[in-house]
Amino acid sequence: MGMIRTIARDGLREAGQNRLLWLVAVLLLGTFLLAEFVGAVALTEHRSVQAALAGTLLRLGAVFLMALFVVTTLLREQQDRTLDLVLALSQPRSHYVLGKLATYFLLAVALAAACALPAGLYAPPDALARWAVSLACELWLVAAFGLLLAFTFRQPVAALAGLGAVYLLSRSTAALVLIVQGSPFRHTGWGHAIVDYGVTALAWILPSLHRFTDASWLAHHAGDWAGVGLVLGQTAVYAVLLAAAAAFDLYRREF
């Protein structure tokens, strides 16, 4: 338990040292300025327009920053042999994974709370709280995916490309399934069968990120806490899966 706490504390310290806070500040300020600009030129429903824009920009920006931070710091630890030192200690390798996940959980909560500051200017507290909780869950899952992919690929470009692909697919697979199964325009043949089964399989395997952090929660006060319950449930299930997969991968690695 001590090693997990140490790794988590070091991870937070590293986040403070590599200018992540400055980048978050730029994201918050940029979003605020853009939302105010759009609010000034919108002809109607300017508050909803501002909320939707701010929600979308903050979510994408936070996911982008979290993914970059996780992948680059993990790869740097592998390249400068810090990881070798940690793994040489008489502690199970899984403690490294759990320590990292603890770091990312705290970072995700902090980042979501920071994003709630500008978003709160355009949305009521209840909708804002649901959005922020969901954003924290989304960021944590993205970070956990980054942990897994950084060990799998060991290259920043491949890891970030894989993480981007997984994220986009997770957010869009549910809609893809309905389009593939219900479209009157679809083609027939083996190509379609592959797409059909492939998309359906992805929907089973990937997390249901389409339920997470919907900007319409802020813009139109849509959704309820039951929806957040589904988000929390999916986060719990998938975080355990990613933690187990990352630990499994790390135990099999020969450094």
Binding site: W204, Y238, L241, A243, A245
Partner: peptide
């Protein structure tokens, strides 16, 4: 745990 988590998903 990996198998159980996959089944849980």
């Amino acid at each position: 745990l990996l198998l159980a988590a996959f089944l849980a998903q």
